[in-house]
C-alpha cells in the first residue's frame, strides 16, 4: 500500500470536510447564542473554535506540502499540530456548554479522520514505507 498516496487522499478530503465542519459549528454556535441566553462559556467555545480553524488550516497546508515534496519536517510538525486540533474537536464533543447530537456526529467523523491521518502520517515518515525509486 502506498501510504503517501493514502495520506494525500485523506488530507485532500479532510480539507473539504473541515470546511463543512467549521461552517456547521459556527452556525450552531450562532443558533445556541440566540436560543440559549444562559450560556456560560460562549466566548471560550467560540475562541476555541476559531483557534481550531487556524490550527487545522496550517496543519493541512503543512502536511500536504511536506507530503508532496517528500520532506520530513513539515509532516512531523503537522502530526504534532494534530494534537491541539484533536483536543479542540474533543472539547466540542465533551466539554462545551451545550453539545447537540449533530455536533457529536460531525465531531466523531472529524476525530476519526484525524486519527487515521496521524497513523498514515507516521507511516509516511518511516523509511520502510517509502515507495522504491527506480532509475
Amino acid at each position: 500500500m502506498n501510504t503517501s498516496l493514502t495520506f494525500e487522499v485523506l488530507l485532500y478530503l479532510n480539507s473539504y470536510y473541515f470546511g463543512l465542519f467549521a461552517v456547521c459549528e459556527i452556525g450552531m454556535n450562532v443558533v445556541k447564542y440566540m436560543n440559549f441566553p444562559d450560556l456560560k462559556h460562549f466566548s471560550t467555545d467560540f475562541g476555541i473554535l476559531m483557534a481550531v480553524c487556524v490550527i487545522e488550516l496550517f496543519r493541512v497546508i503543512l502536511a500536504r506540502k511536506g507530503n508532496l515534496t517528500e520532506r520530513k519536517w513539515p509532516v512531523l510538525v503537522a502530526i504534532f499540530l494534530t494534537i491541539p486540533s484533536l483536543a479542540g474537536v474533543l472539547y466540542f464533543m465533551i466539554w462545551q456548554s451545550h453539545a447537540l447530537r449533530f455536533e457529536y456526529i460531525i465531531c466523531g467523523i472529524q476525530v476519526g479522520l484525524q486519527f487515521v491521518e496521524i497513523v498514515t502520517g507516521i507511516l509516511c515518515l518511516l523509511p520502510f514505507c517509502k515507495t522504491p525509486e527506480y532509475y
Partner: peptide
C-alpha cells in the same frame, strides 16, 4: 466530483 461525493455521503 470526488470531494462532492465524499461530502454528500457524509
Amino acid at each position: 466530483l470526488i470531494p462532492a461525493k465524499f461530502l454528500v455521503l457524509v
